[in-house]
Design a protein around this nucleic acid. Structure first.
Lengths: 345, 345
DNA sequence: TTTTTTTACGCAAACGTTACCACCTAAGTA
DNA sequence: TACTTAGGTGGTAACGTTTGCGTAAAAAAA
């Protein structure tokens, strides 16, 4: 069921030339006379010739395609990241193959294997929440496959990385609540395996420290699936609220955790910020339409995607092995709305 | 910078066999003796041999990859669709290449051209809002490239299509408002070029008709970019509210339009449903956390994606040309919350 | 034993393209 | 005039794989 494509041979036959001449004419080689070039170009145009990318890939041993591994595509942050990746890829004529780990380690291993066996020229990875062993990544990297890590970084892999300033984001969020009079501030974090989790948690702790508020370990919960499983969030909030001394405010350290928390509050009939204040990480476009409007930390997802792809291309297209790697940190945006305001009563 | 892969030749050399023997052994041909097979298999395992997919593609003239063209990936509906597509593709060992039209006709043409020149085995398309001429699609289709259309259908192309029951969704949404006592109900629609727009508008009109409410053309606005540009939504709402006889309720006929409308209401300080009731299409996971909780029509996006991919595979893998095409219509979900409730005053 | 069949493998072409090398012709140089 | 040089072109191998055909040796049939 595939249509027959016009090849260089067809042109050669039509013009009574050899394939090599046609090939050179098409690539505008200096060895070919202007008249022949013109003839070939016209014929190619007429027959609607398109070079076969598969044959080219085989010859040049590169596919002009890259792979992306993320946990979930149906997540604003990651879809915006992919948007950024795609914008650069499009400009440079690269194809983007996307695969999702669904936060599963096994699936991530399979994804990486699939992509590399498919011959992609490089891979962009943000590790899954389950991933604590990074050998599947470092193995490929050691073999020479260009890899760039973004957002959720795998430690011990010496390559370019792009993250947003997680520490700063969490610090600002926490400080905002403190400035608005809250002292009992809980933190709901993604899995402790994730780099982002620790960076953000450190920001939270540092903000408390800087304001002489003692860190209460009961106020810190790691949600293993980072909000992908709603019940996990519900349970965490429940745990917070049944403490003898429940928090008055909460910082939610990922998009899904933020959304899940808001949903839980609503279900429990808790008013924000009167019953509980919240400031969270989120890249959803819903900040304004929640009840009340959400004060949030927004990561520069699109820019992160662009930067990741640019660095990956740099790796791919470099003639000589690169040994100096960049760790790029982009600044998040802090958007103040109402969910972190001082309570009224 | 690419790592050297193990080829069939390496195995042949290591074992003192010919490449054809190795190839046949790997494919478990009857011509090869069990001992040789075992030897080859072991050697392949040891050297970590992976067949080169590019070479295979060249030989078999298929790439085991498919293309997807959507307007935007950062849109819940489409990211859920892609999720469905990917789940089937993954099972069948297909690669998914995603490209976005960003609602631009020119970009859509380029995307299709790029994907087909990249040799994908088939393409899944949901047309952009700007697209009113479908030749770029039918041309490829006529050449024999398998194409399946989903959600936003291009008329005049004889192939499989998957949509949700847009008429029914809009009908139910409108009827819900009518049952709750509203008579002045406006409709905010996507571009009139889009198939979904007309189907949904028809559902809206039919619900009004069935309840003896006269259709008021001032109550119908088509938003060309379907909410991708926020100002367009703002303007439309503005236009509604400055009518001599403004609507009391509104049905928003796409995800972005729904979210945009809610945002506009909030900015204008309009209370839902007291100042205006709203029921809209949406696949966002925010229904519960808006103010008030949103009554909505949810399309079975994941299932639509799955169905699309399944039908495309059927086209791709069929031995003989298919002339009988399926038009699959999936039922949307109607979720009643509070935004369409009778007003209190 | 001789002939036929079967088994098990190798050779080479093909997929579409590029690149190295070789070749021929005509013009320039000695 | 003879020789070199440059310009323009063709032949062919190679990328990794599959596959039709050929064939030697072994097994079966005569």
């Amino acid at each position: 069921m595939k249509f027959e494509a016009v090849t260089i041979k067809d042109i050669a036959k039509a013009l009574g030339l050899s394939t090599s001449t046609v090939s050179r004419a098409l690539r505008d080689s200096y060895e070919i006379s202007p008249e022949t070039k013109k003839l070939v170009l016209e014929c190619a145009e007429k027959l609607n010739y398109r070079p076969n990318p598969v044959a080219l890939s085989l010859k040049e041993r590169k596919t002009r395609s890259i792979g992306v591994v993320v946990c979930e595509i149906a997540n604003s942050f990651f879809s915006q990241i992919i948007n950024g990746i795609e914008s650069v890829a499009y400009d440079k004529g690269y194809n983007v193959m996307i695969s999702q780990s669904h936060e599963s380690y096994d699936r991530e291993v399979l994804d990486l294997q699939f992509l590399s066996s498919r011959g992609v020229d490089g891979i962009l990875v943000s590790v899954s929440t389950e991933t604590s062993d990074f050998e599947h990544i470092s193995n490929l990297h050691d073999k020479g496959l260009p890899i760039v890590l973004f957002d959720r970084i795998a430690p011990g892999i010496n390559t370019h990385t792009i993250i947003s300033d997680n520490f700063k984001g969490a610090y600002e969020a926490t400080e905002h609540l403190i400035h608005n009079g809250y002292k009992k501030i809980a933190a709901l974090c993604p899995s402790e395996f994730l780099s982002i989790s620790n960076e953000r948690l450190a920001g939270y702790k540092e903000a408390l420290n800087a304001n002489d508020i003692k860190i209460n370990n009961n106020y810190i919960i790691h949600s293993f699936y980072g909000g992908m499983v709603f019940s996990e969030v519900e349970e965490a909030i429940n745990q917070f609220m049944t403490l003898k001394d429940p928090p008055e405010a909460i910082v939610t350290l990922s998009d899904k955790l933020t959304l899940g928390s808001l949903k839980t509050f609503k279900r429990r009939g808790m008013k924000v910020p009167d019953d509980i204040a919240i400031v969270g990480f989120s890249n959803s476009d819903i900040a304004e339409i929640t009840d009340p409007a959400l004060t949030l930390v927004r990561q520069p997802a699109f820019e992160m995607g662009k930067a990741s792809m640019e660095l990956l291309l740099q790796l791919i297209e470099s003639k000589r092995p690169i040994t100096e790697f960049e760790k790029r940190v982009l600044s998040p945006e802090f958007i103040v709305m109402h969910s972190g305001l001082p309570r009224k009563r």
